[in-house]
Amino acid sequence: MKTIDAKDLSYKQLNEKLFNSIDDGERQIRLTNVKGQRYIAAGCTLKDLEIEIEGTPGNDLGAFMNGPTITVKGNVQDATGNTMNYGRIIIQGDSRDVTGHSMRGGMILIKGNIGYRVGLHMKAFGNNFPIIVAGGKAGDFLGEYMAGGILIVLGLLNDDDERLIGDWTGTGMHAGVIYVKGNVTEDQLGYGAKLIDFTEEDREQITPILREYSKNFGIKLSQLNKEKFTKIVPVSYRPYGKLYALKI
């Protein structure tokens, strides 16, 4: 495994070193002393590339990414996986606002909490199916304009009576599903989202995802999958059909 020391490097220098190493044929790269450098691995399309990050990467980690696996030993900042097409980002700490913005495929697994507007406008297409799983709790506007994929909030780090998601969840949502392992009330939902019953089919759907999560963070699957989840879906899959009058 090749190691790149990010100490005192600008994001441009760090990405240059990273991409030079990739061009040299390296497929396992460790970045150490990362302190807020943005855009790490942005636009990288190699499916067999593995990047391990020690420290705190900056905004837009893995933006437009289409393939690699990134593991972060630490927290990440905003817009992780922005418009990502495929690949994996595994975060041992927290992840902040707009994680997975317009993400179209791949998986973002977060051990800790997530910020505001996570999963904003994420959408599924063909074989691409985006998944975000957070171990802790989420901020407001979770799954805003959501147009596909799955968002799961587990609340493993929180007290039983704690609110696991913020307000305005699923505002403008028109496809996709949000699962929350805990109680959610109607007043936490935004316009366009509703609560429906969690079924055995749902459990079948999320079990492989939770298995993946348990494998990555060493948490027992039985602990993740024991109780009932709250399921949030769009009120309508075609909310914009009759918004305007056709002027004849």
């Binding site: 507007r117 959408k123 899959y237 075609r238 909310p239």
Partner: peptide
């Protein structure tokens, strides 16, 4: 557009990032 057939394609008013 990379979205499923028959779904509404919504461009939000702002870019939310």
């Amino acid at each position: 557009r990379m979205i499923p057939v028959g779904t509404d394609a919504l461009s939000p008013a702002p870019q939310h990032d």
